[in-house]
Each structure stands twice: as C-alpha cells, then as structure tokens.
Nucleic acid binder design. Structure first.
Lengths: 230, 230
DNA sequence: GGTTTTGTTCGTCAAGTGACGATTTTTGGG
DNA sequence: CCCAAAAATCGTCACTTGACGAACAAAACC
C-alpha cells in the first residue's frame, strides 16, 4: 500500500535487493549451515535479522523454512550438530592396528579435529547453559560409547583384567576424555591455548592414562608405552 | 503528570510498592549478590527488569547504583566472581602436613566446593562465550599459580627431579586440573553427575596423576601412593 | 507469449528492553 | 514537628526483536 502510493507520488521506490533463487532443499541447507556458525558465535539469543543478513537473505525468508526461531535452532541441533561423529572411528579404535597408545592418540586427535571444533564446542556449551534439551541426549550417548570403547580396548590391549567392581576404570576414562575436551574449551572458547599445544596435550594425556592404568587396577600390566615420545 | 491527573479525576492511584530502605553500601552489596546468581542462571543477556524483580526493587533503582548494565555486570565480576579463591589453600598445599596424595585431594576438594560452584562455573562459561574480558585475566593468573604449586609440590614430595625441559610436567598438571573442572561442568552445568561422583573422581584423578608422574618424567620415584583408597 | 507457481522481499505490528527525568516517601537532624 | 537530604518508584521514550500479511518477480509450464 505505502510503496504503491509512494510510486504514484513519484517518490523513488527502494531498490529491491536481488538474491539468487535456490531450490527449497538447497536454501534450507544453506540457512542451517550459516545458522550453525551464527548461533555458535553469538549464542541462541542471536537475532534473526543478523542471521538473515549473514545468510544474504531477508529476515522474512527464514520464516518460510521454519515456523519460528525455536524450530530453526532445533533443526541446527538435529541436522548439523548431532551428525559430526563418525562411527568408523570407534571401530578402528577397537580393532585397528598399531599399539594401544597410537590407536588412542589417533582416535582422540581425529575426534578433537573433527568433532571438538570451535562451533561444536561453543554450541554445546550454549545449549547446556540454556538448558536446551536437544544437545544433551546426543552427546551423552556418544560419550558413553566412547568411554566404553576406550576403557575396554585399553584394558584388553595391555593384557589387564577388567575389574569386577568399582568405578576406577570408568573414572580414568573420564579423566582422559575430560582433559581432551577441556583442552578444546581452552583452545576454542577461552583462546588461551593454540592447536599445537592442544595436540601435544592429547599425547601426554594418553601417556598418563596408560601409565597409571595398571597401578590403578592393582595389576601388573605389559610394559607401559614409552613416556617420552619425542 | 499522568498520575497526578488520575488522582484528581478520582481514578484509584496505583499503590506504590514499599521496599525497606537500606544504606547505599548495603543495597549495592545486595544487588551485586543477587545479580551474581541472576546472571549466572540467565546469562549476561538477562533483563534488568527481571533482575530488579529478583532483588525486590524497582528497575530504576539499579541505575542509581550503576551507570548502566555493563557496569553492573563488570562489578559482579570484580566484586564477587574474582574474590572466591583463598590464598591460604595454596600455602597449605605447599607446606602443609600429610602425604602428597592427601594434600592434593584436600586442596582440590576444597577448591571444588568453594570455587567451582554452580554460579561460578556458569558465569565463567558465559563470560568466555561472550568474549567478556573481565573473567579471563583473573582465572588465568589463579590457574597458573595452582598449576605451578601442584606441579612443584608433587615433584618435590615424591623425591623426583624437576625436568629441565619439555612440557610433560605442566601438561600433567593441566590434565589433573582439567579433569576436575570438567567434572564440575558435568555436575553443575550439564547436570549429568552428582556431587558424590564428582568428589570420588577427584580422588581417582589425583591417584592417576601421581601414579603416572614417575614414568612420565622418566624417573624412579618413591612408592606410588595407594591406588586403592577404599 | 501468456499464465501459473512459488521463492523472495517489503512494510509493519506488538511485545520486549535499556535508559532516565520527574515524582514520591522514608529518614534523620534541628 | 518540620524540613532538607536522599532512597526508591512511576511513567515513558527510543530502539530492538520475533513474527507475519501482502506484494513482487524469477522460473516453470503450456
């Protein structure tokens, strides 16, 4: 209405921004990709207008693909956040070649590089702080399986016996996992550590884990792997 | 203006909410205390109106004590967030009595109980995610000193030699510290672990750290402390 | 080429949101 | 008991922000 009467009155019409048209599936995927980065940087309270601008489309278009902001956020979690883990890594960890030490290091360096990225970690933290229910179930189940794999593979690979009671083994696996995740937080979120330091810490953490395992289980294991990889 | 004419016109005047008057210093302290809890729960984007309501005062009053919201947030960091650590703990860790193991456990359980609280951890994460510059310098300097103390006290207490090069010792201290902090995040932020589990993990983490230390430094230390505290 | 379909934008509303001038009311000193 | 000082609130402004009806224009179809 307004625009039309402006035009009739001779006021120069605002030039409409032109955006390349895309098939719906493609546009939706593009929005989700940008939204993943956007929300991980600015948090779940980031504005839809800013997100739209980051996508190079109008704000209104977001509401053609998602009924509201909450649905868009949820889609980011289910379509992008929860699909980063590669099941093959666990398999390689369990039955792959090489020493226990090298398999653990390869697994965790890959995990750090592909999963514990800046955007993944930040979004995981944002959702935890906001009591967002979408991230927790996924991360929980994946982490449980990682812990199980790491624990049993290490015990088996070092010719130890799995303890019948107590939580020492699980606690140890948690400590290893936790050290690596916190290294990622320091690197990606706090910015107080560089990538090389983080990757070196992964090696040291694996060494500590393996060196402590026999004593922790009260058993005599195979010779501990070299503690001086350099 | 409006209120007065309403009164003249006979419209019932809105009953003014009564709030107990406080001396400025006391009111300011009360606001900061509530704001600490408030921002740690709802994030730094929490609304001033909600905070005021949580304080039981009007929104306008906040602006009598702080020029703007940013100044209020900063005051929370400098006056409440950065004053939790007790220097005496470090001293006790360095020269206190008991075994290396028991001193480490006492120190970290105290640290976990007094510093790594729900509100402290949540606010630390919120500020890190928001690139808030107030928390990082404080946490950095405190953590550096903790790491130094833990490392040298452990090396000395186990009759080991401080290595002249390499980062293995520092990495190990980081791993210990990181495991405990991440336990706190799981407990307070993710809610996937209870307090008892966390405290038991602290013991196990210390055991792992101590068990691995001699091998990690390529030296023969004193007998490792019992790995089965139960 | 005309018509239909639909991807995309414009304009705008209502609720929210930090900030602050004006006003009210408690308090303490004389 | 009165009055000045100041603690606290009310009302409101300007801007933000999620949401959406209506208009527009690029493809697709015949």
């Amino acid at each position: 209405m307004k625009a039309r009467s402006d035009k009739l009155r001779g006021i120069k019409p605002k030039k409409r921004t032109v955006t390349r048209r895309l098939p719906p599936e493609q546009r939706r995927a593009q929005i989700l990709e940008r939204a993943y980065n956007f929300f991980s940087e600015y948090g779940l309270t980031g504005q839809t207008r800013h997100l739209a601008s980051a996508c190079g489309v109008s704000q209104r278009l977001l509401y053609r693909y998602f009924p509201n902001k909450a649905a868009l956020v949820e889609a980011v979690y289910t379509d992008r956040f929860a699909t980063t883990f590669d099941e093959a890594w666990l398999n390689e960890l369990a039955v792959g070649g090489g020493t226990v030490r090298s398999r653990l290091i390869v697994f965790y360096q890959r995990y750090a590089e592909k999963v514990l990225t800046r955007r993944w970690l930040r979004l995981a933290l944002y959702s935890a702080l906001a009591d967002n229910p979408f991230a927790a179930p996924y991360t929980d189940s994946v982490m449980q399986r990682i812990l199980d794999s790491v624990a049993s593979m290490s015990v088996h690979g070092m010719n130890l016996q799995r303890p019948h009671e107590g939580n020492a083994l699980r606690d140890a696996a948690w400590m290893l996992h936790g050290a690596i995740v916190l290294g990622g937080i320091r690197h990606h979120v706090y910015g107080t550590s560089d990538a090389a330091t983080w990757f070196r810490e992964i090696e040291t953490s694996v060494d500590i884990f393996l060196a402590a395992l026999p004593a922790l289980l009260g058993q005599q294991g195979d010779a501990a792997p070299s503690a001086e990889p350099g």
